[in-house]
C-alpha cells in the first residue's frame, strides 16, 4: 500500500489526516472549478460541496491504484454538472457583454490575455473536448484517470483530445498545432 492509500485510510477515522489531504488538494480542486465556472463565489461554494461530498463518502473509498485527486476531480465534475443543471437560465449574450466581468470581482485572479484567448477558444469546443483538454493539460491527469473521471472509455478521451486540439488550432490566431509534421518534438498519448 502506498503512502497516499495509507493517508486516505487514516483520514477515514482521523479528522487531522483528512485535513492533510484537504491542504494537499484544496487549491488544485478550487482552481479547476474556478476555471470551469469563471466565478469566485461559485467556485468557493462548489469546492466546499466537493470536499463535503468527499468526506461523506470517504468510508466508501477503496484504493484501486487511482490517485485520490482523481476521485476528487470526479466529484468536482459531478458537482459542476449538477450546478449547471439546476442554475436559472442565463441572460442573452448581448446583455452579458454589457455586464462587468465576474472574473474581475474582488479576490478573483488577474487573468492574462493568453488565458482569456485560450479559454474563449476552449469554450467553443464541445463539452467533452473542453473537459478532456482541461484535465489533460491544465490538471496533468493521465488518460486512464481522465477516462475514469469523465466516465467514458479511454479511446473516447483520446478522440476528444485529438479533435479538440485540432479544433483549437483553427480557433487560435497563430499556427500552434501540427499533425504529424514534427515527430521529433511530438507528444504521444498513451
Amino acid at each position: 500500500m502506498n503512502e497516499e492509500a495509507a493517508a486516505v485510510q487514516r483520514a477515514q477515522r482521523d479528522p487531522q489526516s483528512f485535513g492533510i489531504l484537504y491542504d494537499r488538494h484544496c487549491d488544485r480542486i478550487y482552481r479547476y472549478i474556478l476555471g470551469r465556472t469563471g466565478n469566485v463565489q461559485i467556485a468557493e461554494d462548489l469546492t466546499a460541496e466537493t470536499f463535503l461530498a468527499a468526506l461523506k463518502n470517504l468510508w466508501r473509498f477503496r484504493f484501486t491504484g487511482r490517485p485520490f485527486r482523481a476521485w476528487l476531480y470526479r466529484i468536482a465534475v459531478a458537482q459542476i454538472g449538477e450546478y449547471y443543471r439546476r442554475r436559472t437560465p442565463t441572460i442573452e449574450l448581448e446583455l452579458a457583454i454589457e455586464l462587468p466581468d465576474l472574473r474581475q470581482t474582488e479576490g478573483a485572479p488577474i487573468l492574462t490575455d493568453e488565458y482569456r484567448q485560450m479559454h474563449q477558444a476552449l469554450e467553443q469546443l464541445s463539452a467533452g473536448q473542453h473537459e478532456a483538454i482541461v484535465l489533460r493539460y491544465f490538471e496533468d491527469l493521465p488518460i486512464a484517470d481522465i477516462s475514469w473521471v469523465m466516465g467514458i472509455p479511454e479511446s473516447t478521451v483520446k478522440s476528444h483530445l485529438h479533435r479538440g486540439l485540432r479544433h483549437l488550432h483553427g480557433l487560435l490566431p497563430s499556427d500552434a498545432y501540427d499533425v504529424q509534421s514534427q515527430p521529433q518534438s511530438g507528444r504521444t498519448l498513451a
Binding site: 484544496c26 487549491d27 478550487y30 482552481r31 474556478l34 476555471g35 468557493e44 469546492t47 479576490g107 478573483a108 485572479p109 487573468l111 492574462t112 493568453e114 488565458y115 484567448q117 485560450m118 479559454h119 483538454i133 493539460y137 491544465f138 479511446s155 483520446k158 478522440s159 485529438h162 486540439l165 483549437l168 488550432h169 487560435l172 497563430s174 499556427d175 500552434a176 498545432y177 501540427d178 499533425v179 504529424q180 509534421s181 514534427q182 515527430p183 518534438s185 511530438g186 507528444r187 504521444t188 498519448l189
Partner: peptide
C-alpha cells in the same frame, strides 16, 4: 492514436493555466 502537439500550442496551454489560489480565509 498518435499525434504531435506543437510545442507552441503546448506552451500556450500551459501558459493559459489559471494561477489562482483559494483565499486563506475561505
Amino acid at each position: 492514436m498518435t499525434y504531435n502537439l506543437n510545442p507552441n500550442l503546448e506552451e500556450r496551454l500551459r501558459n493559459a493555466r489559471l494561477n489562482a489560489e483559494v483565499t486563506p480565509a475561505f
